[in-house]
């Protein structure tokens, strides 16, 4: 659809720079690379597990830059006190994955 992605351009640039700083291989970050970053948020591990479930859209155990942005978006919102949804709302699905 043509629904705007909830991750705005400015926020996407920030998430992309974090993504690049973690040393993606072939445009992907493995769970081992992403896990310590999410743990840094100090959010409960069960919440972070759900963030991963919602972000790894193709369930390959790795995040590309759009999936990583979904993960970071959910973590930042959770830190602001918003609950992490049980399933990914359509506006949060990256346009490249629809």
């Amino acid at each position: 659809g043509d629904m705007p992605w909830v991750v705005k351009a400015e926020e996407k640039m920030k998430f992309d720079s974090i993504f690049e700083s973690l040393g993606p291989v072939g445009g992907m970050l493995t769970g081992d690379r992403v896990k310590p970053v999410l743990l840094n948020s100090k959010l409960p591990v069960d919440i972070l597990g759900r963030v991963w479930e919602l972000s790894d859209l193709d369930r390959d155990g790795m995040l590309d830059r759009d999936e990583f942005s979904v993960a970071m978006y959910l973590v930042y919102r959770a830190l602001e006190g918003e609950p992490v949804p049980m399933s990914l709302p359509p506006p949060l699905v990256p346009p490249s994955k629809r």
Binding site: K35, G49, W52, E53
Partner: peptide
């Protein structure tokens, strides 16, 4: 959801 006997793709599980 995960392959039987296979490991999870979720690093937090």
């Amino acid at each position: 959801q995960y392959p039987a006997g296979g490991s999870s793709t979720n690093p937090f599980l």
